[in-house]
Amino acid sequence: MAVSEKTRKIIWGEAGGRCAICRVQVVTPETDWDDPSVFGEEAHIVARSKGGPRAGALDDASIDNHTNLVLLCSKHHKQVDDQPGHFTVDLLREIKAKHAAWTRSLGEATPGQLRLVPDPAFPQPRRLKLITRGNPLWNMIKPSMTFEYALPDRLPEEDEDLILEFLGLVQDYCDIASDLTGVRENRDAEKALQSYLSKLAERSFLVGALVRHMLLTDGSGQDGTPWPMLRVEVLPASHATITDERGRPHPDVQLSAGVPDEEQSA
């Protein structure tokens, strides 16, 4: 059997559209160009497959029943499946019940109010940092909750493929950074990023990045959820302006944020 549409509506309704663990809304706001992005997933408490995490003796109807499903963001869905020793059946049922009670306590939410706003507790960066090594970029990736990027238009196919591979790697690391806790795993990530930075430099491309401190708010008047946003831009070296913190030309301090020909978000 598969999870029915009715069951999905029950799960999302009980959870208020929020991850039961971090309580973040699992639908991002729409943009001027794109529909909202959904990163909520219905996670099984008792696994569907016999070899899955928290596998147990439930029949097919019960496995896909709303009582055996909990709404999680993609990050925490992966975590609970990777760490079944901690996230036991009893713990997940407790998490789900407490979250449902918390959601009911909020009352009716005002639709259409979910949005990202600058966090007033942090100054917003005005320039991109010039990234030449994997370590600084990895340290910017680790705390980030979302990722946006920009690249030039009308590039040779070989150059565009390389840039897209690099940006895809950055996006993948944003998704799994919280799961890479070992020193070796972190160092391997830095080396993988460094390899692409070196290849881009060989083709006369510069990489700039910054982290904007944002808050995900729902219009309820409550404090928003911290939502750091990483921005990465790849520019031909001939189109970049290197400046110091005061905006004065400088050979190796910062890359001024330019206006790209093509801009997208991930």
Score class of each variant (00 low, 15 high):
E263D: 06
A192H: 06
V183L: 13
D175K: 10
Q264F: 03
D175L: 01
F205V: 03
E165C: 09
D172G: 08
A240S: 14
R187D: 09
G221L: 12
K199I: 06
L193A: 02
G219R: 05
G208M: 09
A189N: 08
E262F: 05
T225D: 11
H213G: 07
T181C: 08
D161F: 10
P226L: 13
D161A: 09
V253T: 07
L200N: 00
G208Q: 04
V232F: 01
E185C: 10
V183M: 12
L216P: 02
D218Q: 05
V183T: 15
S204P: 00
Q171M: 06
N186K: 12
L230K: 00
V234Y: 00
Y173M: 08
V207Q: 01
S265C: 00
S198F: 09
E245G: 14
V259E: 15
T217H: 11
S198W: 09
E160T: 01
P251M: 07
T241E: 09
F166W: 10
P251L: 13
R246P: 04
S198A: 04
G219F: 13
A237Y: 03
P260W: 03
L235D: 00
G247E: 13
I242G: 03
D218H: 08
E165V: 08
D244E: 10
V207W: 03
A257S: 11
E233D: 05
Y196N: 07
D188F: 11
T241V: 14
E233N: 01
E245R: 14
R212N: 15
V234T: 02
H213E: 15
Y173C: 01
S178M: 14
S178H: 15
P251V: 11
R231N: 11
L162P: 05
T225C: 00
Y196D: 03
E190C: 09
S195Y: 13
M214F: 11
A177R: 07
R246Y: 14
A237F: 02
Q171L: 11
D223V: 12
E245C: 12
R248G: 05
P228A: 14
M229Q: 13
R203M: 01
E263H: 06
S265M: 01
A209Y: 03
V207C: 09
C174V: 15
D223E: 15
P260I: 08
I242D: 03
R187I: 14
P228K: 13
T217Y: 13
S204E: 04
L193E: 10
W227M: 14
S256E: 15
